[in-house]
Every structure is written in C-alpha cells, then in structure tokens.
Design a protein around this nucleic acid. Structure first.
Lengths: 213, 213
DNA sequence: TGTCATCTGTCATCGACTGACATAAATTAC
DNA sequence: GTAATTTATGTCAGTCGATGACAGATGACA
C-alpha cells in the first residue's frame, strides 16, 4: 500500500476519532464541522471529501457493522435454518467486537454513547439497519428457495431485526452485557416460536400473496 | 373555537398540503421552504413556527398515526392478550384510514409515496416508530403486570412492530391492499408463534422482576 | 526529472434553521 | 366601543451544513 493510501486512512481515522470525541464532550448538534476539521488540521472542505455528511462520520462504524453482519450471514453453512444462521451471524459479530483491540473498542463505545443520546443519529441508525434488512431478506429468501417478495423471508428477518434492535438498549453498551442480553432474548424467542417456523413450507394451500398464477 | 384557532388550523393544513404536493412533483430534497411558504402566502419564518423542520411537515401525519395507535391500544379491553390487543389496535387504525374522507385519504397516499421515495424520510419514520415503541412497551408491561425493562413486553412489541413495518412496503400504499397484507402477515405470525407466548409467565424460576406477591 | 493523476485549500454560494425586534391582528377588560 | 393585553406574523441578520469551481500542492510513475 502506497504512502498516499496510508495518509488517507490516517486522516479518515483521525476525523472519526476527533468527531466522536467532540460529539461526546460538546454534543452532536453543538459540534461544527469546522471544529472537527480544525482538530485534525484539515480544511472543512476536506472533511466532506471523506464523509458525505456530519451524520456519516458518526455512523461510519455502524455502517461497517451492518456490512459485516451480511457477510457473516452469507458465510454461514446452508445446513443452518435461516433464523439460526442470522443468530449465529449476530453472535460472530459480537465475538469480533469483544476480541477487538482497545482503540476499536473505545471507538465503538463512544459511538454507541453518542448515537443513543442523539435522536437524529438514532434515526440514521434505523435507516442503515432498514437498508441492510433488504439484503438480509434476499439472502434468507435464497436459502429458503423462495422469492424475496414472499412474506416468510420478510417475517423471519423482521423477527430477527426486532430482537437485535431490542438488544441495543441505551443502557446496554458494554459488549459483554450486550452478548448476555442477546442470549436472553434469543432464549425467549426460541420459547415463543414454533419448532420449524423458519423452514420452507411446501403445502399447496399457503402463500397466496405472490400472485404468480 | 375562536377565529384565531381556526385560522391557525387552516394555515397548518395548507402548509402540509402544499408541502406534500411539492415534494411529490419536484422531490423532497429539491423543494425549498421558500417554495412551500410562497404557495401558502406566508413568510418562510412562519413555516418554522408551525413545523420544527422540513422533515416535520412531511412526517406530521405519521406522527399522528403513531399517537392514534397508542390510544387504540390503551382503549382495548384488558381481556385481550397483549399481542392480540396490539393487532386489534392496528386493525382499528386501518379501519379509520379506510373510512376517512377523500381529503384525508389523499393526504395519506401522497405522504406514503413521498416517504417511501426519500431515504431521509424513511429514517425519520423509523425514529417516530421507535419512539412510540417505548410507550407501547410500557402499556404492554402494565397489562402483563410486568416491568417495562423485562424482556417479554419488549419482545412482544418488537414482534408486533416488525410485522407492522413489513406491511409498509413501498408497493403497498392503498389502504385496502395494506389491510390484506396485514392479515396475511398476522396469519403467518399466528402459525409461527406458540399458543400463549404473549401471556404472563408464572413459573417460579423465571421473571423475578415483578415482585407483586 | 518531468509528466500525470490525485489530494487539498480557498472562495463563493445555496438552503435549513434561529434569535431579535417591530408590526398587525385577535382576545379580553373596562 | 375603546384601551390594554396577548399572540401571530413579517423582516432582518446571522450561523451552520453542504456543494461546485478553480488553483496549488503532493505523491505515483515512466
């Protein structure tokens, strides 16, 4: 990797760190782009060459996590049922989080704190999750041999996302506690859902929605 | 109601209608506050005395719906299980929508179209739903005789919200089709969930939180 | 070393949003 | 009915987020 690439990466990381620090101390709204740029000693214009918006820099880590979640799901073996695969992908993500170095863990914790204390960032997080949900549905549908427009894959992913979202309480930021909460919720989900609910249905009567006939 | 109140209501409605029209024809981002204000013949400053932001005017109807959903839930009889009550509240909401006059139905349809074609508004909608979710959890917890921090009420509402969200596909805007889709999804949910999953659990090992005696 | 692609800073500009102040209108008191 | 009070609105000035255009600086590469 050339010098140019390394410098860019360093600038990008510095901008994220400076932004998260300022967001934490002064608050997201009260922090200006000028202040972030001044901290890293670049021009405000340069900030916008790295991040599309002020929200973007705050949610860049969240966006990475969503991409990783999808990648983990795709890499799960086909033998796992869709919901099991989703849960395992989530567990892998939390494992990576717990095994990360201090710098990354710190970034993650600051990011969580900022996001949970800023309604606009909470909305942005929801948007990212919702966008990723479409990709998750596509992958689950593929595994089921179903169409992404069918209700079943949408329902399976919807239940998973709702469980995952319920984990991200504002009080729950430490990855270890997060993992515990996830397991508790998955246990509850397991007790509530019928065995085989996320397996392909082959009956002729069901699935009237697609209107293919 | 005095003249002043009536004038305010008329201005507010006119701003919403003008905004939705412009958003639909020119797009949300391309529409400026000045254009909306000019359409209603008020100053741009006055716009911001009625709505906190450009997003606010686009989502004012959505915010109303969320308030109504909560009100419907509260008015459901205590004999209904939490999930049933949530579903019935949702059905009531859709019924009100189908029985509304043309002006309101038109506003609703335009609002749906605009929201679904604008990522920023989709995010805002998620935020509103997420905010309302906390109130729904509180009401469900009360019905269960549980604490709002317990996992069960959170899980029940999460499943409901995920089903409700799955209804609001971008292709599904007509209230009648929306109602059909909701029923299909609720049927699927009913098949997937164990009987009694949303009833209070009274076993000695679980749920230590309520401490009701 | 010189050429080229790319990164960066400066400047100008737009649009969302806010505070301060003055004016106009409706409500209330007399 | 008029005066006093409250409240809605318009005007103005200003901040901040975000973008396009252009010029200068810097790393890549022959």
């Amino acid at each position: 990797m050339g010098l140019r690439e390394r410098k860019k990466q360093r600038t990008r990381d510095a901008l994220i760190d400076a932004a998260l620090d300022l967001f934490l101390t002064r608050g997201y709204e009260a922090t200006t782009i000028d202040q972030i740029a001044a901290e890293v000693e670049v021009s405000p214009r340069t900030f916008f060459r790295y991040f599309a918006s002020k929200e973007d820099v705050a949610l860049s880590l969240t966006a990475d996590e969503q991409r990783m979640l999808l990648a983990e799901l795709v890499s799960r073996p086909e033998s796992e049922s869709p919901f099991t695969a989703l849960c395992q992908a989530m567990r892998s993500l939390l494992k990576m989080l717990r095994e990360a170095d201090d710098a990354e863990t710190g970034r993650y914790l600051r990011c969580q704190k900022v996001v949970h204390s800023t309604p606009a960032l909470l909305a942005g997080t929801m948007r990212l999750i919702k966008e990723n949900e479409r990709r998750l549905v596509a992958e689950v549908a593929r595994r089921l041999g179903a169409d992404p427009c069918d209700l079943q894959p949408q329902f399976i992913v919807a239940v998973f996302v709702s469980v995952a979202l319920a984990c991200f309480d504002e009080r729950t930021q430490d990855p270890a506690i997060l993992a515990r909460r996830l397991e508790d919720l998955l246990t509850l989900a397991e007790r509530s859902l019928c065995p085989g609910w996320d397996l392909p249905v082959r009956s002729a009567t069901a699935q009237p929605a697609t209107a293919a006939g």
